[in-house]
Design a protein around this nucleic acid. Structure first.
Length: 169
DNA sequence: GCCAACGTTGGC
DNA sequence: GCCAACGTTGGC
């Protein structure tokens, strides 16, 4: 059986809650608390170990991609849904038929400079732009776990690398 | 702090 | 099954 092609993702986190620096420190983190069905479906049905993730800082000044993570577990039921003491408790999620699923992600890299939403938008403006059609730059896009095209993922890395080179020289 | 976008809920 | 009301996200 041919190996499944690696997929690419963008996952949002408010840095005040959990940042790329936190992930760098911790090494690995359970991505619990997602309570949106589309995001749940992505994690439960489409993610696989080894997939790469753009780690996006939302509700930040400025917002943008702060680094890269990697999916490091298969999907499993989100235990916070069963915990009455958790902010993410969902009394309608039954351990026998879990409603909410999650994966763990591990640290890969922290960009030297944030690739800001403005920078993404600047490269996504126009039909032939490198990031044209990227979901995160669309106005009103709230989905916290988004699929990213391989070419878009590569281009975001290219932006980050270009900045590093300038900074380091 | 405002508010556009949009997902969810619940009445019917 | 429609849709108005409501709640949340998240940029600005």
């Amino acid at each position: 059986m041919p190996r499944r092609k690696r997929r690419y993702w963008l996952m949002k986190s408010e840095p005040e809650v959990y940042s790329i620096e936190d992930l760098e420190r911790d090494g690995q983190e359970p991505w619990d608390g997602v309570r949106n069905y589309q995001a749940r479906n992505s994690m439960r049905d489409e993610m696989a170990v080894g997939d790469l993730v753009l780690f996006y800082h939302s509700n930040a000044k400025p917002p943008g991609v702060a680094g890269v993570a990697r999916v490091c577990t298969a999907a499993y039921p989100d235990p916070t849904a069963f915990d009455p003491g958790s902010d993410y408790y969902d009394p309608k999620s039954d351990p026998e038929a879990p409603r909410w699923w999650m994966v763990d992600v591990e640290f890969v890299e922290r960009f030297d400079a944030l690739v800001s939403l403005d920078a993404l938008k600047a490269e996504g403006d126009g039909a032939d732009a490198p990031l044209a059609g990227m979901l995160v730059i669309r106005r009103g896009q709230r989905l916290s776990v988004q699929a990213v095209e391989a070419a878009h993922f590569a281009h975001v890395l290219k932006i980050a690398r270009a900045r590093t080179r300038v900074r380091v020289r």
